[in-house]
Design a protein around this nucleic acid. Sequence first.
RNA 1: CGGGGCGUAGCGCAGUUUGGUAGCGCGCACGGUUCGGGACCGUGAGGUCGGAGGUUCAAAUCCUCUCGCCCCGACCA
Length: 555
Amino acid sequence: MRFSKMFIPTLREAPADAEAISHILMLRAGYVRQLAAGLYIFLPLGWRVLGKINAILKEEMESIDAQEISMPILHPAEIWQQTGRWDIIGGEMFRLKDRTDREFCLGMTHEEIMTWLASREIRSYRDLPQVWYQIQTKLRDEARPKSGILRTREFIMKDSYSFDADDEGLDKNYQLHAEAYHRIFNRCGLQFMQVESDPGMMGGGYSHEFMAPSPAGEDEIALCSGCGYSANVELALSVPAENEIYDWPLEEVHTPEKRTVKEVSTFLKLTPAHFIKSILVISDQGPVLALVRGDQELHEKKMSKVIGSHRPAQKTEVKEILGVEAGFIGPSGREIRMIADPCLKKGVFVTGANKQHYHLKGVRADKDFTAEWHDIHIARAGDLCAVCGKPLQVSRVIEIGNIFKLGTKYSSALNAVFLDANGQEKPIIMGSYGIGPARIAAAAIEQNFDKDGIIWPKSIAPFDVELMPLNMNDALTVKTAEALYKELKANKIDVLMDDREERAGVKFKDADLIGIPTQIVIGEKTLKEGLVEIKDRRTKETVKVTIGEVINRVK
RNA sequence: CGGGGCGUAGCGCAGUUUGGUAGCGCGCACGGUUCGGGACCGUGAGGUCGGAGGUUCAAAUCCUCUCGCCCCGACCA
């Protein structure tokens, strides 16, 4: 490809409303343009990158016998109604009507439609297993699109779905996908890890996420360097570092106007870890008191797993329900449902006395209060691994893929059944598996850039090499460039030749910004010695080679 | 949905406090000189100041409403 013929609108300055590095660089280097919040146009360079990523996805999907198909984006409401998700999913689903008033939605994922197809076509265990995939646009009315291409309202996803006769089959397809995903992300040059995750609205009981470490990410994961335990902090189990235990007798202490853990702990000259933090929440079944250690935060998702959907109580509700102001509530002597973090089992604590301006010192679990015990705190760096006891690290990550064991949730709802070898009718056992190609691209940039621009991993770069004849007015330069251009193409090397009538400086700046991993610089002076320069975009190291050597060097 | 910020030329911004005929840099077009890390000189094109309504002799500037975008939070296959 010739630069002069390709639409690569590079920008000297970054648009003001871009913040994430991948967003800024993709805009500046002419890969994407924004149409509206969460809607992006992929320009020629950006589309080439997605094409490279998709090619890898296809190869690895085919290698585990997944078959590519293509599903509509516009879905009739009835199918989503049958699985219940039409009502469960709120504003995130785009909904519309056709001219006859029939209801439709735009597909945010394809479990329903894939299962619908299976329900119509699969009859026998002999038809199983099947793995179908597509690389298809999804639409979600995101509450908050952000970080450029990382969270958008319309995006391409590779989604695959497995259909099996039994759990062993599902296990195998799940495992095959996990392995394929490892190969895919490795080939894309990403640093990543596989972690346990919360299945969320997908249902089913078992899932993993693939995470690329990056400060631009929206998720956090806990990692154990000791045993390798890794999980999204939404469900990561951790044991906070132990307290020194004081054998206080139970007594009321006067704590005038001291409400928060911070205030009371400062007042009593104790660390927050010696306190029980009591948080009243309102669930569908009524008020629940959540108890965590004073130095911890309550994790709402973990809490939701125990008591279902809920919200924090307002200050006035606390007074109404518990009869005392929020700063002085505690578990002792309460009849209300209580969920407590297990780290409170051992030790002696200070907590609200349920009496204005008083706290209770010397509170012990089981003796002074009882509760249901569940891990409900947010895992933090420095907490200990629940498996092996070594310290956990917490890091910020971009979710680039996920795999779910769905079981029979969708097949049961949509009556996707088959006859087994004994003539018994059974629901098909399913899994679903997603990867976001645009997120791979963004994560690759977030993990590979410098002050001058993008540094693409070779496998997903828009071109393999950029050929840079510096002076287009020099006949020998042009002649050499044209010959090399032809030869590179003949050797199946993707080459972008910067044949513009631009000054050398502009070409260097643009080349670094665009980030093609190898640059071949053809300069007038060096050329007189019969040499050209091969430059590594990442290290900026340059070697001078004869023209004849170029092909072997860059192959 | 809650909190905050911003909308002025393609991009980055000044001008808004104190109302008085819209400006700078980059980019773009043309001419010339340059030519290995975003050149220089000259000439020029380009603006419903996000939109609507109001106040005023006069509104980018003041008031009301509205739309859009970004950030934090809530939410999130």
